[in-house]
Design a protein around this nucleic acid. Structure first.
Length: 601
RNA sequence: GGGGGUGUAGCUCAGUUGGUUAGAGCGCUGGCCUGUCACGCCAGAGGCCGCGGGUUCGAGUCCCGUCACUCCCGCCA
């Protein structure tokens, strides 16, 4: 990091970064400031590792150098804040520390002052002995963030958005802010609501995304817009989901799918190159249907094989009821060949349990052997069927196959889920190589099983690829695209509907009549009537992007102040109860059980 | 909303079949130490075993409930 250290103007506290105590300063007197990283007190000689954002440098308190500051050196404790000055010297070769960037040098202290003392921290800042629990880290996030690994993660995130901004600025995009207090447009995720004091009984909603605003910016003629936008969704959390998160939001006018994809490939190449990752463009593309069929997911990890294979035709007419019945009912039998993988029976049974967790009714495991299958169901399958399955799955002796039967999408989804989990567990993913892929040709609509209605798969402003047959909405394809990186959905977008009549048709299919459309989205529909250019765009999950680049599984590690998995902030105690007068002012009354937050767990 | 895992010292963890006074490493405090860098050596402090209830002569350990953290499913247009 030292080579990236910004210019440092001299002042009373310091004139040199800790990480900058290098060759060119030998023989010079420098002043450094930072936190006491570690203290090694030899009685007659004290070593202090001083840490700032750029690195660590060793300070030597030697009575021969400065008896008046020696006691100060002895009194120092970890995380005290110190300013010290002294001559930079080259260390004797046998005392060089190759572990730190400044390890060939040290500062012989001739003056120092304590700027701030520190209580003993609840956990070690340089805790490379053991991982500290996440709750303790979040409770004292300001200490957690002092750890060099966290400083680096936050810096990676900064560089990511900086590269995004610089590329888009160079392409003529304008960064435009949109409101955080906006209108609730139900459907989709739950909104966070904010009561209005001036209009009691009415509420603002926090935006789930700036979607409608960016479309209106296109109508307004800005043509190229982007924003690093905060978005809010009141849904349950995950390692990769927070209630407030950040998107890179982009929208362009007078464009089709190829224009958006082309620009975004150049954006990716620029951003990743700036982060030290080289990728080739154009990226491969896969249709949504093919992704489901081959990988059982709409965000396929294509760094490795072991794809889902459809075995339905091989097994049509089989005697084995569990498969035959599903096929007769219009379902499918699918399998994956995981290659040679010898597992004890208990682990094979464990896979069945795991498949059930993913929603499977069952799972069949089978080994390909010289004289046929070794599998619990082997005796139900004829020799011909076994041979046919081996051929379809490309199995050779010793290969482990997993087979599931259900509707095509469900069966593929279960095996796709297992594929992702097992690839990690069994180390099937090649170390090198990134796979960025566009998933295209999405269906416009999908059937909502619970309400038995058609719903927009992407969002209702997505343009269909061609005319929609109202009698068969399921066949309509959308001008939509997702960018998937190593099995992670990095971003997605679409060409939008720019004709009010087409927008009405789409609303009609998903059961939003004109009155309701006018009520909810009237402002957008009206805007579209005043000369809307063809337009489209995309939005990226900045938190996920940063986590991937920094090598973390959880986006909490690239968010300075994240929420826990249950949506709390242990640092500030948010969310918290509020006082009655505050509610009264807003025209709100408590409903249900208003209870004080338990102070202890 | 559902399922799994975890909860013991400041941190990371061990704790046998229910049995006497609950342990380790790190950290912390004091002392010694002039070339260490995860410094070393000596001594010491530190516990509502998440919380509440139950079973038992006896509970860190078994049962019920509850809370917190975490992972997954649902959910996330």
């Amino acid at each position: 990091m030292a080579d990236r250290a910004p210019f440092l103007p001299e002042n009373d506290y310091r004139d040199t970064w800790c990480g900058g105590v290098l060759d060119d300063l030998v023989g010079k007197t420098v002043r450094v400031a930072g936190w006491v990283n570690r203290r090694r007190d030899h009685g007659g000689l004290v070593f202090i590792d001083l840490r700032d954002r750029t690195g660590v440098v060793q300070l030597v308190f030697d009575p021969a150098e400065s008896s008046e500051y020696f006691d100060l050196g002895h009194a120092l404790r970890p995380e005290w804040v110190l300013s010290a000055e002294g001559e930079v010297v080259r260390r004797d070769p046998e005392t060089v520390n190759p572990e730190i960037g400044t390890g060939e040098f040290e500062v012989r202290v001739s003056g120092a002052r304590i700027l701030s003392e520190a209580e003993t921290p609840p956990f070690e800042i340089e805790g490379f002995r053991a991982e500290v629990g996440e709750e303790a880290r979040l409770r004292h996030r300001y200490l957690d963030l002092r750890r060099p690994v966290m400083q680096e993660a936050i810096e990676i995130r900064h560089r990511l958005v900086t590269e995004m901004r610089s590329f888009l600025d160079g392409e003529g995009f304008l960064e435009i802010e949109t409101p955080v207090l906006t209108r609730s447009t139900p459907e989709g995720a739950r909104d966070f609501l904010v009561p209005s004091r001036l209009h009691q009984g009415s509420f603002f909603a926090l935006p789930q995304s700036p979607q409608l605003f960016k479309q209106m910016l296109m109508v307004a003629g800005f043509e190229r817009y982007f924003q690093i936008a905060r978005c809010f969704r009141d849904e349950d959390l995950r390692a990769d989901r927070q209630p407030d998160f950040t998107q890179l939001d982009i929208e362009m006018s007078f464009v089709g799918v190829e224009d958006v994809i082309g620009l975004n490939e150049r954006l990716m190449a620029h951003v990743l190159s700036g982060m030290g990752v080289e990728v080739e463009i154009p990226f491969p593309r896969i249709s949504h249907d093919e992704a489901i069929a081959r990988f059982g997911t709409d965000r396929p990890d294509m760094r490795f094989g072991h794809e889902v294979v459809d075995l339905t035709e091989v097994l049509r007419g089989t005697e084995f009821k569990a498969f035959g019945g599903v096929i007769e009912g219009g379902g499918a039998v699918v399998g994956i060949n995981f290659g040679p993988k010898d597992l004890p029976r208990a682990q094979l049974d464990g896979l069945i349990e795991e498949a059930k967790e993913l929603g499977a009714k069952g799972l069949v495991w089978a080994y390909c052997e010289d004289d046929g299958w070794r599998a619990p169901i082997a005796k139900f399958l004829s020799a011909d069927e076994q041979a046919g399955l081996n051929e379809a799955l490309g199995a050779s002796e010793g290969d482990l196959m997993l087979v599931a039967a259900d509707s095509q999408a469900v069966a593929a989804g279960i095996l796709g889920g297992l594929r992702t989990r097992l690839a990690e567990r069994w180390d099937l993913i090649p170390e090198s190589g990134n796979c960025l892929v566009w998933v295209v040709d999405w269906p416009m609509f999908e059937r909502d099983e619970r309400t038995d209605r058609w719903i927009a798969l992407h969002h209702p402003f997505t343009s269909p690829a061609s005319e929609v047959d109202p009698d068969d909405p399921g066949s309509a394809r959308a001008l939509a695209y997702d960018l998937v990186w190593n099995g992670v959905e990095l971003g997605g977008g679409s060409i939008r509907i720019s004709e009010p009549d087409l927008q009405k048709e789409v609303f009609a299919i998903i059961g939003i009549d004109e009155e309701e459309a006018a009520d909810r989205f009237g402002f957008l529909l009206e805007a579209l009537r005043y000369g809307a250019p063809p337009h489209g765009g995309i939005a990226y999950g900045v938190d996920r992007f940063a986590a991937l680049l920094a090598g973390f599984d959880s986006i909490r590690d690239v968010i300075a102040f994240p929420k826990t998995a249950s949506g709390n902030d242990p640092l500030t105690g948010a969310p918290s109860p509020v006082e009655e007068p505050q509610l009264k002012e807003l025209g709100l009354a408590r409903g249900g059980a208003a209870r004080a937050k338990p102070s202890d767990g």
